[in-house]
Write a protein that binds this DNA or RNA. Structure first.
Lengths: 113, 113
DNA sequence: CGGCATCCCTTTTGATACTG
DNA sequence: CAGTATCAAAAGGGATGCCG
């Protein structure tokens, strides 16, 4: 079965996943369940605070993740994946596997040259 | 089973798929088989010539599509998906379906408000 | 601790004109 | 027909400082 290109929603999913850091954020949350802001920050050393905040807000907006603020000092904010966001997991998996094949394929073709 | 976030290759697949026009180009080629440059251009009215050229070059570089030039006047260039690129189809499908659920989910949540 | 605001630079994309 | 080339606009992303 084909997707009619005119009716394609692939781009909408890409919009959700794209943002340079979103997949890795989601993978961490899928793996660890609930994580605090700084846990994520430490897990992804190269991300800036600004970017982490921004990506989390966008994921929250799309209802892929939950954001829970504990009104205390010092502040505590926990992030977790929504039930609905978990449905992205097979897609992330498929992309991961495809990419592993992709790497091998490219290496083969390198050797031909 | 989890993907270890540190070893994640999802981003590499996204690199291949992302480019604002790549999914729709791939869907057209999956649907129609072989297409000429101008066929693609007409099918995707909003894309500029420059962008179409660029995206096609990038897909070719990743060996997702074939580019065949017929040395004649006027020129004729045909594009098609490689066997290997076809393996992306299930992923495109899964994203399409997820996105349809995504839309419905958001509409539900709109009504609550 | 978990942000937001500001400034600045780089990359991406678009419009337009030209060519083998 | 299938592109390049050039210029301009917009988006993306990093560094730093301040705040409740």
């Amino acid at each position: 079965m084909n997707i009619e290109p005119e009716l394609c929603r692939v781009e909408d999913t890409l919009d959700v996943l794209v943002g340079k850091w979103k997949p890795i954020i989601l993978l961490y949350l899928l793996k660890n369940g609930t994580m605090r802001f700084n846990e994520l920050k430490k897990s992804i050393p190269d991300i800036t605070q600004k970017m982490l905040t921004k990506q989390l807000r966008e994921l929250e907006e799309e209802e892929i993740i939950n954001r829970v603020v504990y009104p205390q000092v010092p502040p505590k904010v926990e992030y977790s994946i929504t039930e609905y966001g978990k449905e992205l997991e097979p897609i992330l998996h498929a992309m991961h596997e495809w990419s592993n094949r992709h790497i091998q394929q490219k290496q083969k073709n390198q050797m031909k040259k």
